[in-house]
Design a protein around this nucleic acid. Structure first.
Lengths: 144, 144
DNA sequence: CACAATTATATTGTACACAATTTAATTTTG
DNA sequence: CAAAATTAAATTGTGTACAATATAATTGTG
């Protein structure tokens, strides 16, 4: 059999697999905060900038409205965010944090440390992982 | 704001994001073969070994029956595989390739090359990506 | 050998992820 | 300024992904 089609020689599979593995490490930690991983990265974006459009969140996280609309509705239902159409442009839905959503940030502060501990990986390996994945993502986005 | 919670400092996000980006490069290529990415990696496993149980496929790909059962039923519906309970142990579902599924392999031979071309990344970067992601996955699996 | 425990898969329910289409609002242009 | 084009979200449909539970078959044990 041709070597290239063997699972062990695939390039994407290890990345796809690692993403799932890391997310599964996040899962129990995030459960205490009542957040899924996808909800968590949306909250990260909002903690950094408390008011953003759906499309702004989408372009930061590479998620479209088909993913974000229901996800944001779930965050709204839990009382972490508010969704309001802009008066100046009714097409735009502006997302803001509620008091509860803002307060969650303090509880979240320890997550990056907890995760690095759960990973049990050297800082060197982590930064190399970050460097190479970002490099390749940038290169992909350049040609698109 | 604490640096650690900023999106740009996250470790998992670039991995999660890159996995999605690579899969989106696969999508148009795999569409010609009438396969999704998940279906493709299942076919990879079967091309390597034409008869395997659901659980064997699952442990190679880290997917459980909740994911695999419907996915395999879709592959069966397309006529690429067959699902048959083992006579020796009726609990076990054995998956085999059909003639059509086997023939797909030839059409798939060019995919790894096509993808590397679409990525437009040096072999060095790709092997570094593979090395570091596999290293970290192994480390995660060691502590689990 | 019967019954409990285990095993393999299937099912159910929730939550992404994304393509394609729809809807409604705003901008552009003739 | 009205019709066409564009834009932003929402909706619909398909396909993962996984936890939890169910079902059915097999194995282990008294």
């Amino acid at each position: 059999m041709s070597e290239e089609l063997k699972l062990k020689n695939q390039v994407c599979f290890p990345v796809y697999n690692l993403a799932k593995e890391i997310i599964s490490l996040y899962r129990p930690i995030l459960k205490d905060l009542d957040l899924t991983y996808s909800q968590y990265i949306v909250m990260l974006v909002l903690w950094e900038n408390e008011e953003q459009n759906v499309s702004e969140i989408g372009s930061l996280l590479n998620l479209d409205s088909g993913t974000l609309t229901p996800l944001l509705k779930r965050l709204e239902l839990k009382g972490f965010i508010e969704r309001k159409r802009k008066a100046t442009d009714e097409r735009v839905v502006s997302i803001t944090l509620t008091e509860e959503g803002r307060n969650k940030k303090e509880k979240a502060e320890c997550i990056p440390t907890q995760l690095v501990e759960a990973l049990d990986i050297s800082i060197e390996d982590l930064s190399e992982l970050k460097r190479i994945t970002e490099k390749i993502t940038n290169q992909i986005n350049k040609i698109k």
